[in-house]
């Protein structure tokens, strides 16, 4: 995957979907995307501070299907409580990366230095590899991943993009701006 493709391009839009925390909700969302032919670029899901709800952050590929239609169909799922679109310039976005990098004793100090630049942490050390955790904006994660590539990546896992509205953009309730209003 080239850095261009990974960047948040015009064909990608980020939806923040508040859902009831019930069994099978993720299957309902994923099933809707698959049967209507929508594409998910990345997806992250976790409980919110209110145990009744979870938040799903979905990066949608809107090249094949208009965002308005995706939102309207999602909204029909009974367990979907609220859908907001987060524009990149109105949101704080973050992503977490775990990566195992081949680094023998000679290269290890270079890698550790880069980890420091990105405020990452060494979470595991082996004979000729280390595992690093980095959190940051998706773009900085892309940069870090590209910097690690020349050393040789043995394993990599990204969480997918999560986001909340910027504080000065937020309404009092903390909701994202509602997507796609129709009459």
């Amino acid at each position: 995957m080239s850095p261009d493709q990974m960047a948040y391009g015009p064909r990608h839009r980020l939806l923040s979907v508040l859902v009831e925390n019930k069994a099978g909700v993720l299957a309902r969302v994923a099933g809707l995307f698959s049967r209507r032919g929508y594409n998910i670029y990345s997806l992250a899901v976790a409980p919110t501070d209110d145990e009744r709800f979870s938040r799903i952050s979905i990066v949608v590929d809107v090249e094949s299907s208009p965002l308005e239609q995706v939102v309207a169909q999602l909204d029909k799922l009974i367990n979907v409580v609220e859908i907001g679109e987060l524009h990149p310039d109105e949101a704080r976005e973050a992503e977490l990366l775990l990566v195992s990098v081949s680094a023998d004793a000679g290269q290890r100090s270079q890698v550790i230095q880069l980890v420091g630049v990105f405020s990452g942490r060494i979470v595991d050390v082996g004979q000729d590899a280390i595992t690093v955790m980095v959190a940051g904006t998706p773009e900085s994660i892309d940069d870090f991943e590209n910097l690690m590539r020349p050393y040789g990546i043995a394993g990599l896992q990204r969480t997918g993009r999560i986001a909340l509205p910027k504080l000065d953009e937020k309404s009092a309730s903390g909701a994202a701006t509602p997507a796609a209003n129709i009459a």
């Binding site: 308005e68 309207a72 169909q73 909204d75 029909k76 129709i182 009459a183």
Partner: peptide, 17 residues
Amino acid sequence: IDKAEIGKVRRPEVGIL
């Protein structure tokens, strides 16, 4: 009554949900 139907096939001049 279904928001997803309004504009799904043909974009209306006036959509009434």
